[in-house]
């Protein structure tokens, strides 16, 4: 039991920390894509390519660079999280009502002020939606961390597989699926609430 709780805690810590970092990077790149359309095309194409790389292949390749351990898993999760976060950020910013931006400009706000005071706050629901997708995916991908020496629920699952023990596999799998569905549900609720505030 303590083993399970420990594994769950580890799983959650790696995923949430990775997503925190991924969100900062993703939103920044999303803003960059919004400000500078040409760069945006390249950034999104790169994120799409990363998304296409099979997860085992990406983990293995990253392991060559970062070695065995949590860091490699975290880097993989951050990379995989980029596409949904960047895409939602730029889409949200691009779809903002141009009158609002005109108004902000008319009040004499600088580009940075517009971004922080008007554009980002209005885009929060959609950005949050992107983070939700990334986080739910990450919970599932993180199970594979065990293959490159990281911990979490994947460890329990993998031991179960090695022992051909269905019970142990389920012991690791059920929390993963439940946590993923729970996050999906709760963050979905938050997303709805956020969008009520902005629209």
């Amino acid at each position: 039991m303590t083993e399970l709780l420990h594994a769950m805690a580890e799983h959650l810590v790696i995923v949430t920390l990775s997503m925190a970092v991924a969100s900062l990077i993703g939103v920044a790149l999303g803003v960059l894509s919004y400000w500078w359309h040409r760069a945006g095309v390249v950034i999104i194409a790169l994120a799409e390519i990363i998304q296409t790389i099979p997860s085992l292949a990406l983990l293995a390749l990253l392991m060559i660079i970062f070695g065995l351990g949590d860091v490699t898993l975290a880097v993989a999760l951050i990379l995989y999280a980029q596409l949904p976060i960047i895409r939602n950020t730029t889409t949200a910013l691009n779809e903002l009502d141009s009158h609002i931006i005109d108004a902000a400009r008319g009040m004499g706000m600088s580009r940075a002020q517009r971004l922080l005071k008007v554009e980002i706050p209005l885009s929060i629901p959609m950005i949050f939606g992107g983070i939700k997708v990334a986080l739910v995916n990450s919970l599932s991908i993180a199970v594979m961390g065990v293959l490159i020496g990281s911990g979490g629920l994947g460890y329990i699952v993998y031991r179960g597989i090695q022992q051909r023990n269905m019970g142990r596999i389920l012991l690791g799998a059920i929390p993963v699926v439940c946590i993923a569905l729970l996050f999906d549900y709760l963050m979905g609720k938050v997303e709805v609430r956020l969008s009520k505030h902005t629209s």
Partner: peptide
């Protein structure tokens, strides 16, 4: 959608055992 959230490693584990 729920099946989709089951990690691949887990699904293959099921297949292996079953």
């Amino acid at each position: 959608g729920m099946i989709q959230t089951i990690p691949g490693l887990v699904m293959l584990g099921f297949a292996l055992v079953l």
